[in-house]
Write a protein that binds this DNA or RNA. Structure first.
Lengths: 229, 229
DNA sequence: CGCGCCGTTGATTCGCTTCAAGTAAGGTGG
DNA sequence: CCACCTTACTTGAAGCGAATCAACGGCGCG
């Protein structure tokens, strides 16, 4: 982990690009920016660990990180894939509670670190911020609920198909992390994930190129979802 | 669903028993109580459904409800078992978003219904309330994350053992809902759950009496958790 | 180059689901 | 009060699907 010293104004620019701080008076943003740092994290380095006290808000400026829980056997379960630009751990930071999961960089990440204190000051002036954090917490809840519901009652193939349709943009899906991590997020082993993609590929429904999945025949995939429930 | 008309003061008493409203000025509680109703819901009746707009806060005064998601196949996945006294759907209500899941009564339930408007008024006067809701949201996140992590990498027997130890009180666990719902919460079929309990029973580790599980040999169960990871 | 990680594919195993009976308790209506 | 239904739970038998074990090719990197 390395601390960067960007030109003045860079931090403010990054802050403004986040929905959480959008539409705030410039004075407020400046005050938050004062205490903020810019850091560079290496691959597989942790932003924080499950159980750590939440002292800072982490804003992912560049790179990808995953939220995970580690079982006693050392195996990790991916709960979320966070991509830039976005926040990581904003809920526990605001609530002043320990992090419920570990955040680990999947690749080299540029991260803005905002001290909790600055956030609390901001919230005192404008409680609206709390509502926004609450809303993002709700989104996360919904996401986890969706994962949980899918894990039980859907086959591997259907889960993969569902993921692809849910992340489809302009005819393709860009996997935000190595396939093994996406597989883990879906509750699958890398082998099973690979096989599922192979089936779709052999059906002519998709085409896989590195971390990009081109969807050739969307109907094919949709048909799977209807049938497989 | 039937609306009750309790003696004045009853609603305030129920409100005060909730951590969310504890320590509030009596004037504030009275104001919240003004708009609140007391309702009786039947078995299997819904408090709200996934996707509904959150207009009210539901306070479970008596009974048990479950939060669930329904897959297109009609199968339901239990995400949470809520017991009285407690809140249901407080996060989406505060955030003003649609409910991410359905809340369905497992048995007859007495529920206090507080209009969202009253909560927002309260929050404007005392933003601390928002932090409390945020904290409860975080607990729910942690809970779901825990479920999700266990579903993949632990066997049925270990999951049941883990649940028992986690809910142990005075040497016994009182299952808050029919076994089939507890099974579903753990991501198991009723059959598998029943079998797991049977194994523990035959090992002499537990004794099952209706909805109460007496833990006779705690070490036995702990040993399972260490070995089974 | 040689080592390690990622991804793919194949063969095997095993735990859970599914299907099928059967018991028991509770509620309803004749 | 009893016949009948529904629902919850338990146990047995069978089949399947994903995990596991294993081998291999590709690629980045020291």
């Amino acid at each position: 982990m390395k601390t960067l010293h960007p030109a003045p104004g860079v931090i403010e620019t990054h802050l403004r690009s986040l929905p959480l701080f959008a539409g705030l008076p410039s004075g407020d943003v400046a005050r938050v920016a004062e205490g903020a740092l810019l850091r560079l994290y290496e691959r597989e380095e942790d932003l924080f660990r499950e159980g750590d006290e939440a002292r800072d808000l982490f804003c992912l400026v560049q790179g990808v990180a995953r939220a995970l829980r580690t079982g006693p056997g050392g195996k990790e379960k991916v709960l979320h894939l966070a991509t830039a630009p976005g926040l990581v751990g904003e809920v526990p930071t605001m609530a002043g509670r320990p992090f419920p999961a570990t955040a680990r960089c999947t690749e080299e990440c540029t991260v803005m670190v905002v001290p909790r204190r600055a956030l609390l000051d901001l919230a005192r002036r404008d409680p609206e911020i709390l509502l926004r954090v609450l809303a993002s917490s709700l989104m996360r809840l919904k996401e986890l609920a969706g994962l949980l519901a899918e894990h039980g009652e859907r086959s591997a193939l259907v889960r993969v198909a569902s993921y692809l349709l849910g992340h489809l943009q302009q005819g393709a899906v860009d996997l935000p992390a190595p396939k093994k991590d996406v597989a883990n997020l879906l509750g699958l082993t890398p082998e099973t994930f690979s096989r599922a993609l192979a089936v779709l590929r052999d059906d002519g429904a998709i085409e896989v190129d590195e971390s990009t999945v081109h969807v050739l025949r969307r109907e094919e995939i949709e048909r799977l979802l209807e049938a497989g429930d």
